[in-house]
Nucleic acid binder design. Sequence first.
DNA 1: ATCCATTATTTCTGTAACAGAATTAGTTAA
DNA 2: TTAACTAATTCTGTTACAGAAATAATGGAT
Lengths: 187, 187
Amino acid sequence: MDTTQRKRRPGGGRKPSPIKTLVVRIPALLKPTVTRLMEAYKAPAFRPAGAMTPDPDAPIILLPMFSDKVPAGFPSPATDYVEDRLDLNQLLIVNNEATFFLRAKGHSMIGAGIHDGDILVVDRTKEPNHGHVVIAVVDGEFTVKRLYQQNGTVALKADNPDFADIVFNDGQELLVWGVVTNVVHPL
Amino acid sequence: MDTTQRKRRPGGGRKPSPIKTLVVRIPALLKPTVTRLMEAYKAPAFRPAGAMTPDPDAPIILLPMFSDKVPAGFPSPATDYVEDRLDLNQLLIVNNEATFFLRAKGHSMIGAGIHDGDILVVDRTKEPNHGHVVIAVVDGEFTVKRLYQQNGTVALKADNPDFADIVFNDGQELLVWGVVTNVVHPL
DNA sequence: ATCCATTATTTCTGTAACAGAATTAGTTAA
DNA sequence: TTAACTAATTCTGTTACAGAAATAATGGAT
């Protein structure tokens, strides 16, 4: 018996979320990992013009990393965890939204550790500077070259003497499509 | 009042586990991922005396797969995007549970495209064969070498003439810890 | 009428609770 | 001695629930 009449509010209330959840039990040590996993999962996905959306299914994986200290011999069981941590995300991808993969062809950049067939991780937001390995558009095609920018001279140099430099004179525009940040080399 | 006397069993019972657990709520879509995460975590996965347990915090790798026209050479900027998707996971990691990372040190394997500081993707389940680049345990330390297995001779060879081969005679055991499948080379 | 604070309503979220499975060691039988 | 059995204890997956969060209708102020 509530004397103070309350008006009903049909249709009110929090709306159902399309994201279903469930409860799982995990090792306590994995808590932070799972937490970050969820953060990464919820992170807004971006969609550069024409780029594919990330595959929603797979690409989250946990891998153990043995750090620098390891090659120096096995740690004793008593040894604590090594502080150094590898996050391939941080290692390979600085800007998710602007990162692309290209496959290298030829041996013109062997000096930079780029072999035929390697996968190049390209960051399109990184500012190209002298000495950077870049993806440039030359004659309407992509090319991997090292950017040379000194004393007013702008050129693209292959890290292989067999290839001639491409020098840009006044009026000629150099279009740098992105900067290569990492090379994945299959064995 | 139980007439059938039951003997007590002090000290009986399941023993407490050192691994504490807790319950978390996660997006349903992440269930398989978290499951794999736990499998990888629990994996008896070879624990060479003193090997570290996987770091609970870091080793999560989120690799968004953007797809450009990757295969068979560089696409022209005008080219349409292709349905083909590159999944770095599939490219780099065949067995989640048995894949580890090591950081290469030194220049002994420069011939294989391995530079100082590169990250090595190591598959522990892949069978080591002649010619493979492997992680071996020599004198209690990790080493990257190329496995030589011909005419009854077993040896570890550096891809650099400055380094001497390590030949294994009868009775000497060669412990191959894993096979290097990929090299990540930062620029 | 428009805007804003209030509130009923609905769903979400983290955690506690619980029942059944699993594990261990003492007890009993063969 | 060995194997089967069972009490004791903990683990594990799921459910339940209380408080937080979100949303739209309500009602008052401007």
